[in-house]
Design a binder for these strands. Structure first.
Lengths: 208, 208
DNA sequence: CCATGTGAATGCGTTCACAGCC
DNA sequence: GGCTGTGAACGCATTCACATGG
């Protein structure tokens, strides 16, 4: 399996959700088209990058296809995560159950306030920020949820990068500067609103 | 100004953040390259789609470029939004101040529980879900934050679509089916972790 | 001289069309 | 017959290279 085109990765990720929620045991590429809006050509091409045989003769075997996608994307690998910044958002994620269901193991939380680290009750161990590098290496943590305020986000990201983190989910509304090889995904609701806003046609009919 | 390529839109959206946080009055495309990782060629091309003259001879005028980008993307237009589903997440957004700063006006909240609508204190008016269509049309609401549980997300999205909504930020972990012309942006942290996971190379050095 | 701006070339992802298979 | 699978054609975005302007 050569490596997949970026857009294909993004579609396959979404495809797992479609398969999980589709109910039936078999789906055709045409059905996926109506559910997602991607053309059936694109979907078949995407699936053709995977190795394995999922065709039943009249559609794809949902279970087989699902596990092939997960395996191709490395979603069957358990990965260790941490939360950096234990404010309102960060401390909420400490108790978020869905992570475990999807193969992500939350193993540490960090905050620059030693006081907060000591007081907060949490199902995962908490550490003061200066232990970040050491703990990440020791546990083999690969991903971080970066929940600190915008002003300290870049500094925290630098420390994560130095500790060898592989990916960061960034909740701060700034563009992080990081060395290549580290994946960043920005999660900021206002940016999503802006992205939608940018796609609303200006004074034009939708079907020109 | 012809319409912009999709990838260019996405980059320009991020570019506004870079410009806001860059401090200086002038930036070169090379500086933007180090801050974002996009090649200076790409950046110059993106900017060349805009009309106006931002070059000072030694870099771009940050303020002028910023406002040109915002205008090209329609970010200078005030847009009305609503929150659908007033659980923990939805009710948090009712009080989120950053929306207004960025030109988004939150004008309504909806929930299927009439009880919750009556009890919840909120700076914006709340309505029972059955009034959704009417209120959206009356106020000219263009965008919705969809914060209902996964099981009811599709039904709620259908009602939003019927009311003529232009875009939806979807917090439910399902792929919504909607007619063309409506922008959807999915926000689900586990999906971001999966996206990162899919990009962590499997047992390979990063510099092969 | 340095940095932008832009037609032209390149390369990659999507679309097509048809062969293969149930 | 219907659906998948895939080399080939196409089209769009990125990259290049050089002309232009401060």
């Amino acid at each position: 399996m050569a490596d997949l085109p970026e857009p294909t990765i993004e579609r396959l990720l979404q495809l797992t959700r479609v398969l999980d929620n589709c109910g039936a045991a078999v789906v055709t590429s045409a059905e996926i088209e109506t559910r997602t809006g991607w053309s059936s050509h694109t979907i078949r091409k995407d699936i053709s990058y995977l190795d394995g045989d999922f065709s039943t003769g009249s559609g794809y075997d949902v279970a087989a296809l699902g596990s092939a996608v997960r395996s191709a994307l490395g979603l069957d690998i358990k990965r260790k995560c941490c939360v950096v910044g234990l404010g309102r958002l960060g401390s909420a994620y400490l108790n978020f159950p869905a992570f475990a269901d999807e193969g992500f193991e939350l193993v540490a939380g960090f905050d620059s306030s030693v006081n907060r680290v000591e007081i907060l009750r949490s199902p995962v161990p908490l550490y003061p920020a200066f232990k970040m590098g050491e703990v990440i290496v020791r546990f083999g943590i690969e991903m971080a949820l970066l929940c600190v305020p915008a002003a300290s986000a870049q500094a925290a990201a630098d420390r994560l990068a130095a500790a060898g983190i592989k990916g960061i989910v960034n909740f701060a509304p700034i563009a992080l500067e990081l060395p290549p090889g580290i994946s960043v995904r920005n999660v900021y609701v206002v940016d999503e609103l802006r992205a939608i806003s940018a796609r609303i046609p200006i004074r034009k009919k939708e079907n020109p």
